[in-house]
């Protein structure tokens, strides 16, 4: 079935078919190869950040400007009338009168879907609380496809906070389309929630749970690291006990496959040592850079300028 992106809201990765994903990646690849500085001339992006997220905001605003469009919006919720008690619905309704496409970041889960009800212009979810951040997942998939030259049948290790980390849930969900084998590496207290692992099982995904990176390093094509937050542990001692098992250093990479690539949504804290940056396995800075092209592709598609 042909996918039409024109005027479509980008809210949740679960709404993307395999064909949808491949279409976004294909356009991102073209935009990376050849710039389109006039594609969105005369169009305006409304950038509504109710919670700060400098990286995502700058990357979307840069994408819009690279395509010749303009940007309005706010980066600080204190500057908006939300603080005066205006509803999300009203704020978005008003911005949709000024903009052709809206990006929204909000601390409440489901805020982007609510925003979509207020706007007849396409809404792009840039993170709604712990719920969804679909553009991050598309960037992850684009980077994986780029560095492995394929997306099908890869061995992917997801490492870190698998319980609360929305990034890994969404990526695991998206990889269902591509027959991946998943290695879930986390301390017991932060393993994938039952609901998420049940969904994976129902979808026929091959996966196994592990306690250390060492157990899986020789088997995987992609090592996807995420941050473990100390505050997730009730007892600080529990954190001290596990934290070293989830720090990646060059020492652990001795048994890596030559094609292994390391991804991380960034910012990193101490789970990924700077010494890894110089190895051929480091892909995370390229991943961050790819954010620009994937977001350009999405803007072009929902505004109907890419087919």
């Amino acid at each position: 079935m042909p996918t039409n992106f024109r005027n479509r809201d980008i809210l949740s990765i679960s709404e993307f078919s395999k064909a949808d994903i491949l279409k976004v990646l294909e356009h991102a690849q073209r935009l990376k190869a050849a710039r389109r500085p006039t594609l969105l001339q005369g169009q305006v992006l409304g950038s509504c950040f109710f919670e700060p997220s400098t990286r995502t905001r700058l990357s979307f605003e840069s994408a819009m400007q690279h395509l010749g469009g303009g940007v309005i919006g706010f980066a600080d919720p204190n500057a908006t009338s939300t603080k005066k008690g205006e509803t999300l619905y009203d704020t978005i309704k008003i911005v949709s009168g000024y903009a052709d496409v809206i990006t929204i970041r909000h601390y409440l889960e489901g805020a982007a879907r609510r925003a979509a009800e207020a706007s007849d212009k396409p809404i792009i979810n840039c993170g709604d609380g712990a719920n969804q951040h679909p553009t991050q997942t598309l960037i992850d998939l684009f980077t994986i496809a780029e560095c492995q030259k394929k997306l099908n049948r890869l061995n992917v290790a997801l490492v870190g906070d698998l319980k609360y980390g929305r990034t890994v849930h969404s990526l695991a969900q998206a990889l269902v389309h591509f027959n991946a084998t998943l290695y879930l590496v986390a301390p017991d207290a932060l393993q994938l929630p039952t609901q998420a692992s049940r969904e994976l099982r129902e979808q026929g995904v091959r996966f196994s749970c592990h306690r250390t990176i060492e157990e899986v390093i020789a088997k995987v094509d992609i090592l996807y690291l995420t941050r473990i937050q100390e505050e997730r542990f009730g007892d600080p001692l529990d954190y001290e006990r596990v934290k070293n098992a989830f720090v990646l250093s060059n020492k652990q990479l001795g048994r890596a496959r030559p094609n292994l690539r390391i991804l991380h949504p960034l910012p990193r804290v101490h789970e990924l040592l700077p010494e890894v940056d110089a190895t051929p396995y480091a892909q995370y800075f390229e991943q961050a850079h790819n954010g620009l092209f994937v977001r350009e592709a999405l803007l072009g598609l929902v505004l109907g300028k890419l087919k």
């Binding site: 509803t87 999300l88 619905y89 909000h106 601390y107 409440l108 889960e109 489901g110 805020a111 879907r113 609510r114 709604d128 609380g129 712990a130």
Partner: peptide
């Protein structure tokens, strides 16, 4: 039941 759900914070 999710206290962080937008439906518990907006008139909707």
């Amino acid at each position: 039941p999710n206290p962080h759900c937008v439906s518990n914070h907006e008139p909707m």
